[in-house]
Simulated scan of single mutants.
Amino acid sequence: MIQKPLKPFEIDPKAFILMVESFIKSYPQHSLELKEIAEKGELELDKLDYFSEKGINFNENNVDYADYTVFWKKYLEIEDILYGNHLIKNSVFESIKPSNNNAIFKTLGVQNISYSLVASKVGIKIELLIKTLRSDIKDKKLFNKLIFDEIKKNQRELNNKFRNLVWDRLDNRMYSRIYFIIEKRSLNNKVNLPRLTIGEMTLKNKNNIYDKMSINSDKFFKIFDPVLKKIDIKKIEKKL
């Protein structure tokens, strides 16, 4: 015999809460189970908040972004809040418009160098991208490598201040990069990594992904900015 699915039923929420309160007084040993149910309910509420945005869905608790704009918009709003509360100092990515790209960029200081947050194949990362767009530089690849080598002179000092940095000269490509993986998570099935979950996105979680991105971006900028300001671009140009 096939059992029919249970139909949704209506109940007076206040009466139900009173029943739960009475239940827990009689059976306090089940309080942890009720707490787990309540936490699941909070996650469902968070999903409803996110579902109001087009371009994002959930497979149970796993996120699926069809449009990266929604992710970057949420992050940029959070960074502004954190900056206002002084939990971060530099607000590296303020005044940036979110887009459907897998990264957001902010060019600061020395020419040809950008800070970027990237949803990549290795996870969500903060990156220093060295890629010149200058039309007056004929050998752009060499120029980028010379800048990378100049920064790398400070590798030991930078590694001591920020562990697990990846130094990627990329000799076969035009650009070079230095990055730190904030979280080994994917935003959809295009990347073969564990999927970001609603629990990791909710702001009630003190260890949520947006806080991690803001704090690590701030720290990354703080250690690299003094180094980049010391680079003599004119001196590097003479080596071309």
Score class of each variant (00 low, 15 high):
Leu128Ala: 06
Leu48Phe: 10
Ile2Met: 02
Asn160Cys: 01
Lys47Asp: 01
Asn112Ile: 00
Val227Thr: 13
Asn205Asp: 14
Lys140Ser: 05
Leu129Tyr: 05
Ile81Ser: 06
Asp171Phe: 03
Asn160Ser: 13
Arg195Cys: 06
Asp139Lys: 14
Glu10Phe: 13
Ile147Asp: 04
Val166Trp: 01
Phe9Ala: 14
Lys235Ala: 14
Lys47Ser: 04
Val70Ser: 07
Val227Ser: 06
Ile198Ser: 04
Ile37Leu: 15
Lys97Pro: 01
Ile209Glu: 01
Phe221Lys: 02
Pro194Tyr: 11
Asn112Met: 00
Ser22Asp: 15
Phe51Met: 12
Lys131Phe: 08
Asn205Leu: 07
Thr202Lys: 09
Leu108Lys: 12
Ile96Arg: 07
Asn100Ala: 13
Glu200Met: 09
Leu129His: 09
Asp46Thr: 13
Tyr83Asn: 14
Lys239Pro: 00
Lys131Leu: 11
Asp211Arg: 15
Pro5Lys: 13
Val110Tyr: 00
Phe221Thr: 08
Leu193Val: 07
Asp232Val: 06
Ala15Leu: 14
Leu117Gly: 02
Thr197Gly: 03
Ala103Val: 12
Val63Ala: 13
Val110Ile: 15
Asp67Phe: 06
Tyr75Val: 05
Ile124Met: 04
Lys97Tyr: 10
Asn101Val: 04
Thr69Pro: 00
Met174Pro: 00
Lys138Pro: 00
Lys235Trp: 03
Ile147Trp: 03
Asn159Gly: 08
Ile24Arg: 05
Met213Glu: 02
Leu34Val: 12
Asn62Ala: 14
Ile126Met: 06
Asp168Tyr: 08
Tyr65Pro: 02
Phe148Ala: 04
Ile2Trp: 00
Ser120Asn: 15
Arg163Trp: 03
Lys152Val: 11
Tyr65Met: 06
Thr132Gly: 01
Lys141Gly: 06
Asp67Arg: 09
Glu200Pro: 04
Val166Ala: 03
Ala15Phe: 09
Glu127Ile: 07
Lys145Ile: 06
Lys138Asn: 15
Phe9Ser: 15
Val70Gly: 05
Ile104Tyr: 01
Glu10Val: 12
Leu76Cys: 07
Asn85Cys: 07
Leu158Asn: 08
Ser214Pro: 05
Lys212Pro: 02
Ile223Phe: 06
Leu133Val: 06
Asn101Gly: 05
Lys229Phe: 08
Ile124Ser: 02
Glu21Gln: 14
Tyr50Phe: 15
Phe71Asp: 01
